[in-house]
């Protein structure tokens, strides 16, 4: 069962990088870079979306493929961030 975070991330990617193409096989592990779904401007769009949607701050050093290159990675990253702010 997808979390609400994951659902929101998926919806953003489908709308902005796939232009609503629901037929695209976008799994949690699909690499956004290797499949040319995202370019350098797209990363910034993604970061802006995550900051606004989840009220988190993403440090420059966190903008790396290890955190943001698939829905699963973004989901884990955002949840960790939300956990940090809840704990703070």
């Amino acid at each position: 069962m997808a979390s609400s975070v994951e659902t929101a991330i998926r919806a953003f990617i489908v709308e902005n990088f796939l232009f609503g193409d629901e037929s695209y096989k976008l799994t949690g592990e699909t690499s956004l870079i290797d499949n040319d779904l995202i370019d350098s401007t797209g990363i910034l769009e993604l970061v802006t979306f995550l900051e606004e949607r989840f009220s988190i701050r993403i440090a420059d050093a966190d903008i790396v493929p290890a955190n943001l290159d698939s829905i699963a990675r973004i989901d884990a990253f955002v949840n960790a961030k939300l956990g940090e702010s809840a704990a703070a």
């Binding site: 870079i33 350098s40 910034l44 903008i63 493929p65 290159d69």
Partner: peptide, 16 residues
């Protein structure tokens, strides 16, 4: 002149 690149980390630059 490409603003999208100025803020990228080395890991993303290498990937792009």
């Amino acid at each position: 002149y490409l603003p999208g690149l100025a803020q990228q980390t080395p890991a993303y630059l290498a990937a792009f």
